[in-house]
Amino acid sequence: MTTPPDTDQFLSAESAAAMAVRVRGVTKEFGAGDAIARVLRGVDLDIPYGELLMLVGPSGCGKTTLVSIIAGTLGPSAGEVTVLGRDLVAMGHAAKVRFRREHVGFIFQSFNLLPALTSVENAAVPLVIAGWRRRKALEVAADLLDQLGLGDRLTHLPGELSGGQQQRVAIARALVHDPKLLVCDEPTSALDAENGRITMELISRIAVQRDRAVIVVTHDSRVYAHADRIASMEDGRIESVAVGPRKQSGTGA
């Protein structure tokens, strides 16, 4: 297990209780026997509240697998996963579903908006899942879309929006229920440079808050500027965690 030299020194200042995400010795294997694929080979990672951590590394090194485990959509083969103070490994299926519903926001590379729903309806989905009345949920979603500059696109279907606009609807959907953990898997890689920049700026400006941790998987070096920390992954392990430009320049939370 590799412990990046600057991590210990950097994190020792913060108490363990301040960690939104705490991953220890996590492994993940797919398949069995000869066909076994060891995708994660002992991952340790901490993400404090109020920070934006970027997870970078070559394609296939296990980034998506790791964030799926942190978000509670996938279970690890071994190791400890504590998110928002809760032990995800010990959590039952139903509790995990509720955990995701209440505390996790998702942004996907391929947007994954419901094509039959309008922008505002898509953005309201997490509130509807949480049992909110439709009207109230749409009101809250509309406010948030307005903040994201989509006030004039509320009733458009995803098919009528540009990629950048769709991803902004996805950002609204990820944040509408005020989750304590936001997981973004390559949110800019399906977008052109300009829209990628706008998307990352919005995430960094609106999503990062004192009581929330944000994890962004990316291999787009142009967006590194928004990172409080950059964790480099290779071949199923975290190779190093470095302080990012945002933390250094003091714009972080």
Partner: peptide, 16 residues
């Protein structure tokens, strides 16, 4: 199926 997957990821239970 991806839409249902997304709804499940976002915390929709199997009953729903």
């Amino acid at each position: 199926i991806r839409q249902f997957g997304a709804l499940k990821a976002m915390g929709t239970g199997n009953g729903t």
